[in-house]
Design a protein around this nucleic acid. Structure first.
Lengths: 229, 229
DNA sequence: GCAAAAGTGTTCCAGATACACCCATGA
DNA sequence: TCATGGGTGTATCTGGAACACTTTTGC
């Protein structure tokens, strides 16, 4: 029943921001500036207040703690809840996790941002330090989710520039799946799905044959029939 | 930053309890007994208090509102969060959704239970009434999730008795996917995955040849390689 | 001319699909 | 004897996986 003075549990939001750096999938982490877990690496996160949605809290928190705006990223549609009774000594807590994807993000770069930031860094998933709370589990969950989405949708798009070569696209998939793909099979697959279209422009970036530049046909998250792996 | 008098948003839990009734996939709904949405059908749900986890709140709420205990069900591993700014006039709210699976459940049957219950019923997914809040969206999400899980894990197990015939198993899958499957191909698939084993017992339940009774090899949620659809 | 990435086809195999008849039982 | 669900095998198709060489450019 709705009671007037009902006390709610602690509600927090955590952001899992992925970006490609040097062809590796990385995630945005901070070093915690206070207890608990002082000095340990953690996902950027914050309490959600009664006057905001979890989404608004994410925006605010990301800028405050990492100097990156959620506006610069693409959010994956669906937030997930993690209920960790043992996480906070003050009582039970629920955290809402968002997955965000970006490219060319620089921690601390937003003007006036990062009030509480503690050394925000994009850290490769294959070289994660020990994380605070149950954040290792949350990152693993998010990575799994990203893999599953990449296998059947165009989620990779926000990780890439608007125009990209086939090699860039393939490398993005390889970074997400954590394994190499065959160049010819990859091309066939992407083309048979009609995911991309040639722009006619060429990328001239070195001592080799210039590559055709492509773009995604659909701007939005698009589900396709068959699947990668 | 952790502040002493921080006020948290409204946090609620909603349960999506699936059960097979007459070979149809049904979901547990109640008729709301107060505003908002008085008289409308809705998922059973409740506020989460500061002294309990979302999981505990689910247990309590289900018994109070439907007379069904979460102990009678199998919970799907992962809760999801839905953040609906417009849902509650008193401020922003986040709801944590659990998917639960059961069989032979009877609303209102728990002794001493169902304090606030309003006509709890298992309603077939293909005959849902208009639902309160954004519950139609939540049910659709849960159904999708169930489909995806059924395609690659043994989630169906809790929907079935311990021992079941191949036809029962197939019918469960058909109910979840909402389409017919080929009997021979289904058998081949299930057997090649080694999902079930014969018990040696026979089901004699009518004017026809008795069927072999099977059980799942793994009691727990088990992920298998290939996939149904 | 050589280093470096771009681009291109075929074969093979496994798994999915489509499909029809006889069997055991109770009424 | 008939109605009902139980139980079985084969041919075909499709999509994924494996695999190597020629092309274009800058230096």
């Amino acid at each position: 029943m709705p009671e007037k003075d009902f006390r709610f549990p602690i509600l927090t939001v955590d952001g899992v921001v992925f970006q490609l750096v040097n062809n590796k999938l990385t995630v945005l982490l901070i070093e915690r500036g206070y207890e608990p877990f002082l000095g340990m690496w953690a996902l950027p996160g914050a309490y959600i207040s009664a006057t905001e949605t979890s989404h608004q809290a994410l925006d605010r928190m990301l800028i405050d703690k990492t100097g990156i705006s959620a506006r610069q990223c693409t959010l994956v549609e669906q937030p997930y809840a993690f209920d960790d009774p043992g996480r906070d000594p003050r009582g039970s807590s629920v955290t809402v996790m968002y997955i965000a994807l970006g490219r060319g993000l620089t921690p601390g770069a937003v003007a006036g941002g990062m009030k509480y930031g503690q050394n925000p860094q994009f850290i490769p998933l294959d070289a994660l330090p020990k994380l605070a709370y149950d954040h290792a589990r949350i990152v693993a969950f998010a990575h799994n989710r990203l893999k599953a989405l990449a296998a059947s949708t165009t989620v990779v798009a926000p990780l890439l520039p608007d125009r990209f070569t086939f090699l860039q696209l393939q490398t993005a998939y390889e970074a997400i799946f954590g394994k190499r793909l065959d160049k010819r099979n990859f091309r066939k697959k992407v083309q048979s799905l009609g995911l991309v279209e040639a722009t006619g422009k060429l990328a001239k970036d070195g001592a080799h044959r210039p590559a055709q530049l492509y773009r995604f046909r659909k701007a939005k998250l698009d589900m396709f029939a068959s699947s990668f792996d």
